[in-house]
């Protein structure tokens, strides 16, 4: 990992994942932790034990907070699970997801293709960078959600508007990560390509793009996370459909367990979805990560 040329901390957003990743490595402050634990201690500090403890603690805290209750609008964990089960059993949750996923998937595919293309073009060509990068740098920092009312004026309350919301949320980070990834291709790798007589086209396809792909994928994952934010926001703000409809409707009739269950399901779904993209990346594009040492 240390030698991988692309574990750069690049754009504000690419940063987050790269950092998270590097921090996941072996701890460098071993000296501090160098106590020799007994068997019991080892069991209690084992990662799996602690993960289960952590999940159980959260569920228990939720259950307790719902039993008190800390708020009339706070159902217990078991009530929420029951509601989730009911929605799964009668298929309403699947129907809602089918609707929510439409703008989300269309928006993500469009953003991914367009965003990577624009970002790579900016990385390869200084004129493209000059022309487009200030727009995306501003877009990355700006609260683009404020554009939603305008999008509704322009495109109504249908699928187009919701897809556009997903696009404007997801695109900047994808563009900026792709740009930075291409721009930070190690010079010695491109020199290697030239010195072994690769034409420009081959240098791009065989060296620059593969070298940039980890950071491009980090951008895609961040873009997906933003796209989910956009999709839910669109459903809550423009017209309640899909999962947003369950949330809005159950809130209006004070059916809080259903509301919480819908929210929980969309959060879990997004986390699984982003994890799946990461797995797909490893399977399709990272032979060196699959190789056994």
């Amino acid at each position: 990992m240390a030698e991988h040329p692309n574990q750069l901390e690049v754009e504000p957003a690419g940063f987050a994942l790269a950092r998270e990743r590097s921090a996941g490595g072996p701890s460098r402050k071993g000296a501090l932790l160098d106590r020799r634990p007994g068997a019991a201690t080892r069991f209690f500090t084992h990662p799996v034990t602690l993960r289960i403890v952590s999940a159980a603690a959260l569920c228990l805290a939720w259950q307790w907070a719902g039993t008190v209750p800390i708020s009339p609008a706070f159902p217990t964990f078991t009530e929420t699970m029951a509601a989730l089960w009911a929605m799964l059993a009668d298929g309403s949750l699947f129907a809602a997801f089918a609707i929510t996923l439409q703008p989300l998937l269309i928006g993500l595919v469009v953003s991914a293709i367009l965003g990577v293309a624009v970002g790579v073009a900016m990385g390869l060509d200084e004129r493209a960078e000059w022309f487009a990068s200030p727009i995306f740098i501003v877009a990355q920092a700006a609260p683009l959600a404020a554009l939603i009312p305008l999008i509704v004026f322009a495109y109504g309350i249908g699928l187009t508007s919701k897809t556009l919301v997903v696009c404007i949320m997801a695109m900047p980070v994808i563009v900026l990560n792709s740009f930075a990834a291409v721009r930070h291709t190690p010079v010695s790798l491109t020199e290697m390509g030239r010195s072994f007589l690769a034409p420009r086209r081959k240098v791009i396809s065989r060296i620059i793009l593969p070298a940039a792909s980890p950071v491009i994928f980090a951008g895609l994952r961040l873009g997906c996370a933003s796209g989910f934010i956009g999709a839910i926001l669109a459903e809550l703000l423009i017209t309640p459909t899909g999962v947003g409809d369950i949330i809005t409707y159950s809130r209006s009739i004070a059916d809080y367990p259903s509301m919480y269950a819908a929210i929980l399901s969309i959060i879990v779904f997004s986390v699984v979805f982003i994890e799946a993209i990461e797995q797909a990346e490893v399977i399709l594009f990272r032979p060196e990560k699959r190789a056994s040492p």
Binding site: P186, S188, L189, E191, P210, A211, R286, P287, E288, A291
Partner: peptide, 8 residues
């Protein structure tokens, strides 16, 4: 070295 990390 300038090796491509993604290639064997």
């Amino acid at each position: 070295f300038a090796l491509m990390p993604w290639a064997s």
